[in-house]
Simulated assay, not measured.
Amino acid sequence: MNDASNIRALDWVDRYLPASLRPYARLARLSRPIGTWLLLFPCWWSITLAGPKGFAPDLKLVVLFAIGALVMRGAGCTVNDIADRDFDAKVARTATRPLASGALSLKQALVFLALQLLVGFVILIQLPFFAILLGVASLALVAAYPFMKRITWWPQAFLGLTFNWGALLGWAAVTGDLAAAPVWLYVGGLFWTLFYDTIYAHQDKDDDALIGVKSTARRLGADTKKWLSGFGALVVLCFGAALLSAGSGFAAYLALAGVAMHLAWQLYDVDIDDGPDCDAKFRSNRFIGWILFLGIIVDRL
């Protein structure tokens, strides 16, 4: 694989999987786990905040949501690649994706999508009824997201609505309802996605301009860092409101300070005209997820 694709040559997919399965692993982005982490952390944060003080988060839910995030992230990538297969073939970073390159047919991708959705459904039906309804509602966002880059300069905002749904779902899985804390967490996650995915989108801004794909990277241009500072501030404020609503203590707020410092470092250090640096900063957001998750766990205990 070439460097532009963000796929390392001879990674674990190439080394350990049979040739017939490799295109499916690539389609689900199994060798690029950062997307799964970014989808999973809002779920884990919410599950932990919703649980009783003095106890660790429900291990069964932690595992179920981990599997669900892996499967549904793969399903989302499959939907995205089905919708974007013609665009992807024209962009250096995405030209080697299985559908764009012809390694998989559209029919094969659709069958794979159905299997992933089936696994996701099996996980979902183990949750309370209200959580099941929330999970089903998220499918509309998953289906609509790939088309947003054709009609709005803010597809990253729509991705935020989609990727952070777990903040609502995780709380509902524990309590059977919603409250202010998961809503604040969801809104904060929206701005977090705007922050990290705008950085990510700067990798493709030249190719996107050539083929007519819209993004916040293209919309904000040279003013990106000014907007990122606003997004970052709103992340911290909304996450702080979520912690306050959930009755959190010192350890959680200390973790939030760590989140703020990491966002500030990204803002200061990122070079929006350097594709590899944008990708590295994007992937570093997994540390934000771990910092806040561990801080909430310590606080609840």
Results as ranks from 00 to 15, higher is better:
residue 204 D to C: 09
residue 199 I to D: 04
residue 199 I to S: 01
residue 205 K to R: 12
residue 209 A to Y: 11
residue 233 A to C: 03
residue 215 S to A: 10
residue 213 V to N: 00
residue 236 V to A: 08
residue 247 G to C: 10
residue 215 S to D: 10
residue 211 I to K: 08
residue 197 D to E: 10
residue 214 K to Q: 15
residue 211 I to W: 09
residue 229 S to P: 13
residue 239 F to W: 12
residue 248 S to P: 08
residue 204 D to G: 09
residue 195 F to N: 07
residue 223 D to S: 12
residue 198 T to K: 02
residue 206 D to L: 14
residue 241 A to W: 12
residue 218 R to Q: 15
residue 239 F to P: 04
residue 247 G to S: 08
residue 208 D to P: 00
residue 260 A to W: 15
residue 214 K to H: 15
residue 243 L to A: 10
residue 254 L to A: 14
residue 205 K to C: 03
residue 245 S to D: 08
residue 211 I to D: 03
residue 212 G to Y: 04
residue 251 A to T: 11
residue 235 V to N: 02
residue 211 I to N: 07
residue 213 V to T: 05
residue 226 K to M: 10
residue 245 S to L: 06
residue 235 V to W: 01
residue 218 R to D: 14
residue 236 V to G: 07
residue 225 K to S: 09
residue 245 S to K: 07
residue 243 L to K: 05
residue 221 G to N: 02
residue 241 A to L: 15
residue 193 T to V: 14
residue 218 R to I: 02
residue 219 R to E: 14
residue 259 V to N: 03
residue 230 G to W: 08
residue 252 A to D: 06
residue 251 A to Y: 15
residue 221 G to K: 00
residue 240 G to W: 03
residue 194 L to H: 07
residue 257 A to W: 13
residue 261 M to G: 13
residue 214 K to T: 08
residue 249 G to V: 01
residue 211 I to H: 08
residue 226 K to H: 12
residue 221 G to L: 01
residue 236 V to W: 11
residue 259 V to G: 00
residue 247 G to H: 09
residue 217 A to H: 07
residue 235 V to P: 10
residue 193 T to K: 12
residue 191 F to A: 00
residue 195 F to W: 08
residue 234 L to R: 03
residue 241 A to C: 12
residue 217 A to G: 14
residue 227 W to V: 04
residue 217 A to C: 09
residue 232 G to E: 11
residue 210 L to Y: 04
residue 232 G to A: 09
residue 239 F to C: 11
residue 249 G to I: 04
residue 222 A to M: 10
residue 245 S to Y: 08
residue 249 G to E: 08
residue 252 A to C: 04
residue 218 R to L: 15
residue 219 R to P: 13
residue 196 Y to P: 09
residue 256 L to Y: 05
residue 207 D to M: 13
residue 235 V to G: 04
residue 226 K to V: 11
residue 204 D to Y: 05
residue 249 G to H: 10
residue 257 A to D: 06
residue 220 L to D: 11
residue 190 L to N: 00
residue 219 R to G: 13
residue 222 A to E: 14
residue 199 I to Q: 01
residue 223 D to M: 12
residue 210 L to S: 02
residue 245 S to R: 05
residue 255 A to E: 02
residue 252 A to S: 09
residue 218 R to M: 12
residue 219 R to Q: 12
residue 227 W to I: 10
residue 230 G to L: 06
residue 191 F to R: 03
residue 247 G to A: 10
residue 250 F to S: 10
residue 195 F to D: 06
residue 196 Y to H: 15
residue 231 F to T: 00
residue 234 L to W: 07
residue 251 A to H: 15
residue 236 V to I: 13
residue 230 G to M: 02
residue 204 D to H: 06
residue 194 L to E: 00
residue 201 A to R: 04
residue 209 A to M: 12
residue 252 A to K: 02
residue 246 A to R: 03
residue 237 L to G: 04
residue 206 D to C: 05
residue 229 S to M: 14
residue 201 A to P: 03
residue 198 T to S: 04
residue 192 W to M: 10
residue 202 H to D: 13
